[in-house]
């Protein structure tokens, strides 16, 4: 069975990517399971989706714990423990990261020996609108080595039928180009084995103790603990204040920041809390002095 996990951010089309790959396998005669997973977080937050494909009925359910292929749409997610990109990765797992950096850089950074590939997939708006996920689905189709170009094409057309002419053809181009690009690595991903029952690690079940009611209620006995959640990781664009141009009317950008992520310092300058700024860029739009600009987050510039 093939077990494939897609990691990205809400809005990058991970669900669609998993469905394109799922449909391509299905066109190819495979039994398929595909599903997205998301929690409380919204657009920009880490999400993942997964695909299983096999020549027999798939009985497994839920999250893939030991993937054969991990695809990452946003390289800033890789070092983020909460995103779980590297969860269950073994030396035989193939990693495909959408990144401008080389595989060597990533292999060194992550200190992993297994196969690792990069591909710079980017979203585009306007007439040429396409999603990061479409290219990655095309790349994945080639990496498993059992999906034909025709099956991929049919899958893209099926899954993106609702988007209409230009968008569909733009996405299709992306998928097919990525498929071609991965030709040298065709078949790099192999099917994983099922967990054997003959010898297994016993689950360390415990007797749940009866705890005090106040600890055992879903209640939080503290204030503003949410500051521990680093929503800054959602950001793909970073607002940066040019203090030369800032005229210290901090009440504008600070008041209009939905996330309370702009504070005023002792010199009455606004300061952006990059641990929590989600990158909505309202401050960029509202700054009367045009002193705030948006720059892309690079993978080195983690908050």
């Amino acid at each position: 069975m093939y077990r494939i996990r897609f990691h990205g951010r809400g809005g990058q089309g991970m669900k669609t990517a998993s469905r394109i790959l799922g449909s391509a396998f299905f066109q190819q005669g495979y039994e398929v399971q595909d599903a997205p997973r998301y929690g409380a977080e919204r657009r920009g937050a880490p999400v993942f989706a997964y695909v299983r494909a096999a020549r027999r009925t798939i009985q497994e359910r839920g999250i893939i714990l030991e993937p054969d292929l991990v695809i990452v749409a946003d390289d800033s997610l890789v070092p983020m423990p909460a995103a779980g990109v590297l969860q269950g990765v073994t030396p035989r797992t193939v990693l495909l990261i959408s990144s401008g950096e080389t595989p060597e850089t990533w292999r060194h950074r992550l200190n992993i020996a297994g196969p690792l590939l990069t591909l710079q997939a980017e979203a585009a708006a306007g007439a040429e609108q396409h999603f990061v996920g479409t290219a990655l689905a095309g790349a994945a189709a080639r990496l498993v080595g059992v999906i034909t170009l025709l099956a991929l094409e049919q899958a893209v057309q099926l899954e993106l039928a609702g988007l209409g002419g230009e968008t569909l053809s733009s996405n299709l181009d992306q998928a097919l180009a990525a498929y071609e690009l991965m030709a040298p690595q065709a078949g790099l991903v192999s099917e994983g084995e099922a967990l054997a029952a003959a010898a297994y690690q016993r689950p360390d079940w415990v007797e749940l103790p009866l705890d005090e009611a106040d600890a055992a209620a879903a209640a939080i006995h503290a204030g503003a603990t949410s500051v521990e959640v680093r929503t800054g990781l959602w950001r793909t664009l970073r607002p940066v204040i040019d203090y030369q141009r800032c005229n210290r009317c901090w009440w504008v950008c600070s008041e209009f920041c939905p996330d309370s992520a702009i504070r005023v310092n002792a010199e009455h300058f606004p300061e952006i809390d990059y641990d929590h700024c989600k990158g909505c860029l309202i401050c960029v739009a509202q700054c009367p002095a045009h002193a705030i600009s948006a720059i892309p987050e690079s993978s080195e510039a983690q908050p």
């Binding site: 009866l210 055992a216 209640a219």
Partner: peptide, 24 residues
């Protein structure tokens, strides 16, 4: 401050709170 009756996401965390009611 007390935040009461909050959301609990994740089956293992949810199981804890539900099973604690059973144990109680």
């Amino acid at each position: 401050p007390v935040s009461q009756g909050v959301v609990v996401l994740g089956g293992a965390y949810y199981s804890y709170f539900r099973y604690e009611q059973h144990l109680a």
